[in-house]
């Protein structure tokens, strides 16, 4: 697969403090987060290199204060990075002029904020229409569009409310609607569903999956919720103290944690739900009989794994056998969970 890189981040640093640029230049290599803090600086993003390809959903996870929001803010240049480079669609972010940056944001980017960032003096409808207004769209068209997305997030009938008159979850949906209104190519979602009830949360997840699948949107998604991450992610990046510990597909993260921290972090997850047959398929021995789908998780196959007597079960992707799955290994994963 030759996917096109949309966001490319190379050795990016974001340091908070009095004179971060100077500090970074004079800093010896290999300082830890705590060393930097001892010098009176905070490493919000620490030497991060990551590429996001078109149409991908990258989920960023990590403890509170690990730098997730900061990293995403660097991607959208709400923060100027201290060192390294970030390119978006081939343009070096830091070299953009103000005008080019505004153009990029108007036409390509959208963001949902962790604490919503609603304008307090505007109604729901006016908040949602705000990005459209800034682009100079005419009043009628932007009202139409805003009404449409307000309905989509289930806030029909509250168009004229002010943010302060809404509950937390409703406010969050206004934030989501605002970014949906412009359907950007690149989407930054900072814990966009944290305040929603499970029902709406699922609806919203489906909506974003639909948009991603249908329109090939690139999405960077921050969440604290593993279920959500597993549902949405193509890849998961796990952050700690500003650095990305590991960035890989969900199966790889649970099967082959790169560091002790990642292992601990993913300990609680039910691996049987994450690991898919395709990952366990090995090239050498194909096995015989009816194949199973590569996209099926170990949990999906639980009954078969217990009842089937074959040692190796063939795994097929789009009706073509790609390898064999060792039944004992799969059972091991299944049992480990319970």
């Amino acid at each position: 697969m030759t996917a096109e890189t949309v966001i490319s981040c190379k050795n990016a640093w974001k340091i908070f403090g009095a004179d971060p640029k100077k500090y970074l230049r004079s800093m010896p290599a290999g300082l830890s987060f705590d060393d930097i803090r001892a010098d009176g600086y905070i490493a919000g993003v620490k030497d991060v290199s990551i590429d996001v390809t078109r149409g991908e959903m990258l989920v960023i996870m990590g403890l509170s204060g690990s730098g997730k929001s900061t990293l995403v803010r660097c991607f959208s240049r709400l923060h100027d990075i201290t060192g390294g480079t970030i390119t978006v669609e081939g343009q070096d972010l830091m070299s953009l002029s103000e005008k080019e940056l505004i153009e990029l944001r108007r036409n390509k980017m959208g963001m949902v904020f962790q604490s919503f960032g609603l304008l307090p003096h505007r109604t729901v409808l006016e908040n949602v229409a705000f990005p459209l207004e800034m682009r100079g769209q005419d009043k009628h068209a932007r009202r139409e569009r805003a009404l449409e997305v307000v309905k989509l997030v289930g806030l029909e009938g509250r168009e004229e409310y002010f943010p302060r008159e809404l509950s937390g979850g409703q406010q969050q949906r206004v934030g989501i609607a605002r970014s949906l209104a412009i359907e950007p190519d690149i989407w930054f979602l900072d814990e966009p569903f944290s305040a929603l009830d499970p029902l709406i949360r699922r609806e919203m997840q489906d909506e974003f999956l639909r948009l991603q699948g249908m329109l090939g949107k690139t999405i960077v998604f921050i969440t604290h919720d593993f279920d959500e991450a597993l549902r949405l992610a193509d890849r998961i990046a796990i952050m700690k103290d500003g650095a990305v510990e590991q960035c890989d597909t969900p199966d790889q993260i649970v099967l082959n944690p790169a560091t002790e921290y990642v292992r601990k972090f993913t300990e609680e997850i039910d691996k049987a739900r994450v690991v898919r047959a395709g990952v366990l398929a090995q090239g050498q021995v194909m096995g015989e009989g009816e194949p199973v789908e590569a996209s099926a998780s170990v949990q999906d196959l639980a009954r078969l794994l217990v009842q089937d007597a074959r040692a190796v079960i063939p795994v097929a992707q789009s009706s073509k056998v790609i390898g064999g799955m060792d039944r004992a290994a799969a059972l091991e994963i299944l049992l480990e969970a319970s």
Binding site: R105, F113, S115, L118, H121, M134
Partner: peptide, 25 residues
């Protein structure tokens, strides 16, 4: 700051940011 950032991400120019985001807030 998030309100300001929301303005920025909506593609506000400096003047729009002042007029529509800062002053009303």
């Amino acid at each position: 700051s998030e309100v300001v950032e929301a303005g920025n991400m909506s593609g506000c120019t400096k003047w729009q940011l002042l007029r529509h985001v800062y002053l009303p807030s």
